[in-house]
Amino acid sequence: MMIFCNSEGIEVAADATLADALASYLEASEGPTPKGLAVACNGEVVPHPLWSQRHLAEGDRLDLFSAVAGG
């Protein structure tokens, strides 16, 4: 099915979780969950511990944010 990460369409498995989609988008197929990230699914912040439990649906919009340098 098709979902959107930061407005970019990506194809994921029909039973994909948010964690799966994130790994696919970041091309980090293995290893720990990337740190310093926040994700909102359809405008609602999803806490880290729920990433691997949250199943996605066709057309879900993920907004991804990360820590950057700043004053």
Partner: peptide, 10 residues
């Protein structure tokens, strides 16, 4: 130390 948050650029 301060830092900021931005939309992720992969």
């Amino acid at each position: 130390v301060t830092l900021a948050l931005r939309r992720l650029d992969r």
